[in-house]
Computed example of a mutant assay.
Amino acid sequence: MPTSPAKRPRPLSPNIQNYRPQLTSVLSIANRISGVLLSLAAVVLVIWLLAAAAGPEAYAVVQGAFASWLGQVVLFGCTFAFFLHLCGGIRHLVWDMGYGYELGSIYASGWTVVAGSVVLTVLAWIASLVLGG
């Protein structure tokens, strides 16, 4: 007696089993995630501004949250998200002008986005520590 089609296991695509994320796909997803994180960071910025407008007590509470180790990690992440989104946007502007579509250029610009984001984040934090006291 033949087995019904519903009882047979579905074959898995060999592409799914052998898929390895590419730099371009990872950066595309990271760009979207960083955009969402920056939207959330904008809400936190508004909260900070409202606390500053509300008076010293409210401002001290928000500043205390930002000064905590968790607040510093979140601010560092927001800084990295900002620069990742910025560098990715510049990369897309170059593509919009019709440049950089060769495979070597795509990977070079992708790694430049990653490296530039890291370097700009670290430089921004060093500048904030040096200039901010």
Rank of each mutant, 00 (worst) to 15 (best):
G104L: 06
F82I: 02
V36W: 14
A81R: 09
I33A: 14
R20Q: 08
V36F: 15
A108M: 06
V73D: 01
L70K: 09
A127G: 06
V113H: 11
A42Y: 08
K7T: 13
R8C: 00
Y107S: 04
L129W: 13
Y59V: 00
S105N: 05
V74C: 01
G110A: 04
S128V: 02
G71K: 09
S28M: 12
Q72H: 10
V26D: 06
P5Q: 02
C78V: 13
A65W: 14
S4L: 05
G133K: 10
L38Q: 06
G88F: 01
S34R: 04
V26K: 09
T24G: 11
S105G: 13
I126G: 01
F82S: 07
A42P: 00
T121G: 06
S13E: 07
H92E: 09
Q22S: 15
P11Y: 03
P14V: 11
T121E: 04
V119F: 11
A115M: 10
A58H: 10
Y59P: 00
S105K: 12
A65C: 02
L23T: 08
G77W: 13
E57C: 03
M97K: 07
G110V: 03
N15F: 15
R8K: 14
G35V: 07
Y19N: 06
L93G: 13
F82Q: 00
G35M: 03
E102H: 14
L75A: 15
G89V: 03
P2K: 10
L23R: 11
F82D: 09
P56W: 01
P21A: 10
Y59A: 09
V26Q: 00
G71P: 06
Y101H: 15
L23G: 11
L12N: 08
V46G: 02
Y101K: 04
A41Y: 09
F80K: 03
G88D: 01
F82K: 06
P9R: 02
P11G: 09
A58T: 10
E57Y: 02
A127H: 08
C87N: 12
Y101R: 10
S34I: 08
Q17G: 12
G77H: 03
S34H: 01
V114M: 07
I126E: 11
L86I: 12
S109P: 05
V113E: 07
G55L: 00
M1C: 00
S13I: 01
T79D: 11
S39Y: 05
S34F: 12
A124K: 08
P14N: 06
L86K: 06
F82L: 13
A51C: 14
S4K: 05
V94C: 08
R91N: 15
